[in-house]
Structures are given as structure tokens and as C-alpha cells.
Design a protein around this nucleic acid. Sequence first.
DNA 1: TCAAAAGTGTTCACCGTACACCCATGG
DNA 2: CCATGGGTGTACGGTGAACACTTTTGA
Lengths: 242, 242
Amino acid sequence: MKKPAPIALPEVRKYNSQDKVLVAVDCIIFGFDPNKEELQLLLIRRDFQPEKGKWSLMGGFLKADETAEAAARRVLRKLTGLQNVYMEQLDVFSKIDRDPAARTISVAYFALISTDEHDKELIKKYSASWVDLSKRPALIFDHDQMVNKAISRLRYKASIKPIGFELLPEKFTMRQLQKLHEEIFDEKLDKRNFSKKMYSYGFLERLKEKDKGSSRKGSYLYRFNKDNYQEKNGNWIDYRNR
Amino acid sequence: MKKPAPIALPEVRKYNSQDKVLVAVDCIIFGFDPNKEELQLLLIRRDFQPEKGKWSLMGGFLKADETAEAAARRVLRKLTGLQNVYMEQLDVFSKIDRDPAARTISVAYFALISTDEHDKELIKKYSASWVDLSKRPALIFDHDQMVNKAISRLRYKASIKPIGFELLPEKFTMRQLQKLHEEIFDEKLDKRNFSKKMYSYGFLERLKEKDKGSSRKGSYLYRFNKDNYQEKNGNWIDYRNR
DNA sequence: TCAAAAGTGTTCACCGTACACCCATGG
DNA sequence: CCATGGGTGTACGGTGAACACTTTTGA
């Protein structure tokens, strides 16, 4: 199918004389616990040197036969067991000494998962745990930078796409949805304006059921209707064409 | 200063067993010729295999002792002679066979320069040339994808930051500024509304001089006032915190 | 019956958009 | 004097923000 690349000697030498480097992927994994009403981050305790025992993002090395995205998905799956996760490339981090053990550049990905869905066994195996975003410990290398960047990106994305649904269980209440947005943007929102806006997008499906967990009266459960979203997504403008 | 990384044998073997890959940087270089009133792209004709003679973005390989951004700036400088250029990381492209000669991942950067500033000699040396964005030839590898992504990003950026000034000469007319925006967003704008909006941001400085090149009456020249921009940039919202 | 959370409508200010005429000048 | 592009103001509608009271029900 593909014609073999023509190999001319001087050019081959050119390629060969270039430096090769290790390429890592690191995953910034966000979650949201509707009960705790806090944004959370899935972190691991590193079980190898350097910086063994310190808190870190989950990461791994890019293999020669996979794309960066595939590597990130592999890493994420190893830790959570989840496959079809919202994931997006953030940026490359390439400071020379970012990993003191070896020259490594890292491609950071951010992922959104609903905390009730992942595999608890795997998390235990990797000594990982969910920590409140606001109380997160210092991380190794440049991982704090990665997290900060991921937060910005999350805000941006949430402002132009209904991305927050990735972080909620299938059925959720309007309050939970609002709390999530309040956490993401770090500001209080007016519940009347908030629900009005959400209704206007047209992709919320109100169920018959009510959730009685948080009040006497009970609150309606909603579901995100993807079909409606596809039809009406003219409401959401994304300049970045993702 | 920095304490040496603790080296434990098994972990070193771990790092060593990982694949290393070639890392390239590619620059999507946008320009705008206020006379032609067209967005342009700076392309080169590749002078080595594979795909020798085809149109391509300017690129190069990442060296072991430089960051990706430094590499991109080095590459850009080699071609244009320019140093303080607006530049931003786009994304990593890592399809396995994107470069048929060797497994290479590429970090794409997009850059904005004012076409009157660059070094014509260097451009000649690299058989580069400015092409109209709308009439650009097909590019090698995945460079077309890179360009498309860069266009989206340019639109996004221009919608939240006064990025377009990077593409204009120091002094410019309101018409030129408008044309630039029209090119970026690919739509006609109303000149009254446009200038009103630009004034409202408060960072345009109207000069005494007029440009008599395009009309009898002559049109005022403006300058971008960075100080004013710093003060008033609350007008521009950037969720991505750059 | 009351405490606690849920649900719901209206008003107002501001911003983006549509739209048309006079001005200055060189030829 | 006239053709050409330059420069400016107003009116309207839609959207986002502020704001308070009633409902439900378990204890």
C-alpha cells in the first residue's frame, strides 16, 4: 500500500545523527464525588526511584509502536480499568531536568471520569487515591504545573461544552450539576439562573424519579441526552474545533 | 544546588528498557500582508529525503539539551532571523507512520509574525516562501492537519486576546486591522461596529499621522499600546491562563 | 407544625448587531 | 467637482445577572 520511503544515504545519516529522547505520558485525572461535592484528583504514590513514595500523577512511557494518545489511554486503563473516557491532550512538558533520572519529555493528558465507575482494586494495587483538588499534596517534578494547566483547560472546556457530564454519574440532580460547575469555576452560582441556562441547552432529560437523599422534598434526577446534544449543539461554540 | 537523583539499580533498568524516539518540532508560521490583505503561511520546500522537493512546514529535531519551545524558536529563527515572536504550543502529533523514514513524534508550534520584518535572505536560502493561506499547496506527512489545527487555534486566540497585532506592522490602519480579523474569521464585519469595539478595549493609540496609500482622504494610523493593554486586559477573558 | 432543601418568573442593564450619511482630498 | 474610501451614532433585541417567595415532606 504505502510506497517505501526512498533512502538516500546522506539524509539517512542526517536522521541518525539526531538525539532520541524518552517520551512519557502523564494523566491528570479529574473526578467529582457528588456527595462530598468536591472536585478530586486521582494520584499515585510512586513506587520506584527517583522520588519513590512521593505523590505523583499516573504516567508511563510511550512505546515505539503506539501513539501518545494510545499510551495515555493504556496508562489510564491500567489504573482505573476504564476505557471510554473523555481525554484530551494538554501540552508537552520538556524542561531539560524535569525528571532528574533521565532526559524525558512528557505529554500530559487530562481525563474526566465519574468517581463511582472506576475499579477500586486497581487503585489499591497502585497505591493510588482520590484527593480533594483543593487539598492536594505537592507533586513530583513538574506535575503541579500540569495540574494547574489542566484546571485552566477544564474551565475553558466547561465553559464551551457540556463537559461536566463526564464527571457525574448517569443520573444526577440539578444541585449536583450546579455544585460541579461551582467547583470548576470556583464561584457561587444562582440556582434559578443556572437551571434556566441548563434547560435552555435542551439536552437535559428530567426523569420521573426523585432523589430523596438530600432533602425531605426530594429532587428530580436528570440524565444527559446525547442525541439531543448532537442536534442542538449549535448552542455551544467551540473555536478549537475538537 | 540540585541534589543528585538517587539511583537504585532495578529502577535504572526500568528507565533503560524504555523506547526512545525522535522528537521533531514543526512551526506553523502565519503572516499577514496588509497590502495583499491575505493571511499567509510560510512554507519551505524540503531539501532532503523523504519527500524531498515537496512543500512542508519548517521543522527540526529536538536536541537532548533544549526544551521543545527552545527548539521551535531555534527553528523559527533559522528561517526568519526573528527572535521575539509570538509562539504557542499546539499539540503533539504522534501517529506511528507519520514520517515514513523513522518513528518520529512532532510537537507543533504556531507562530505569528509580521511579514515585513523577517529576513528575506534566509527565506531564500531555505527555498521558503509565503503562500496565501487559502491557496496553500498540499503538505507532506500530517502537516495539513497541523495547519488546520493552527487555524482553529488562531481563531480561538483572536477571539479572546488581541493577538492579531502580532501579525501587523507597528503602525496600521483601522481597515488593515479589520481586514485581518475578517481573514482570520472568514467573514465580513461591519466597520462601524468593528472600530467601536476596538476603541472600547482601550489599547489602540491613534497617531497624528495618516496613511495616504489607500485613499484621498487618508486614514489614521494606530499603534497597539501594550501598557494600556496590561491595565485593561480585564476586558479579555482567557480561560486558558496563558 | 416546622425546618430544610427544592423549585420557579420577572425586571433591568448591557452588549452585539443592524443600518446610512457626511467628510476630506487628489485628480 | 466628483469619485473614492474614511469616519462616525442610534435604535433594537437578546442574553446574562440580580433578586424572593412558595412547595413539599419527614421528623
